[in-house]
């Protein structure tokens, strides 16, 4: 129960952060004059954040360790995707002093690492200590 509640909260928080970072906390560059790569990265991150938070909510409802392990492993892959959107798949502005590069990307790096570490740690915990059938 403790694992379900704590990990579920962490996943939901991470998902919310992925949504809030490019939109509210460290917003990407303004798209008033022209839509740059970071604008599309923001859109993709919003979708990704919602999925991460939804998986976090699902994690709470599943008692079966095998299912939870699967959800946890999915989060590892999604955490990688958080960073792949701005760095490889879509990109952000190339100028070194643009808001998306100076603030949004570093903040996404932080969330990626934290979500990755939590997911990997939790997967190992479930696989080794809980041993799902």
């Amino acid at each position: 129960m403790k694992n379900r509640i704590s990990i579920s909260i962490l996943f939901i928080l991470s998902g919310l952060l992925v949504v809030l970072i490019p939109t509210v906390l460290f917003p990407v560059c303004s798209a008033e004059k022209m839509k740059m790569a970071c604008f599309f990265t923001k859109k993709a991150e919003i979708g990704l954040g919602v999925v991460i938070a939804a998986i976090g909510a699902l994690y709470f409802f599943f008692k079966n360790e095998g299912v939870r392990l699967g959800l946890s492993l999915t989060q590892i892959l999604l955490s990688a995707l958080i960073l792949l959107y701005p760095t490889k798949l879509i990109g952000i502005c190339k100028s070194t002093d643009m808001a998306c590069r100076v603030k949004t990307l570093p903040a996404l790096i932080v969330v990626t690492v934290l979500l990755g570490v939590v997911s990997i740690g939790n997967s190992l915990y479930l696989a080794v200590f809980k041993k799902p059938e």
Binding site: T96, D97, V102, K103, P106, A107, I109, V110, V113
Partner: peptide, 13 residues
């Protein structure tokens, strides 16, 4: 490290 290194440019600014 997770904060000060990625946010280096922002801190400098």
């Amino acid at each position: 490290m997770l904060i000060v290194i990625p946010f280096g440019t922002y801190i400098g600014m």
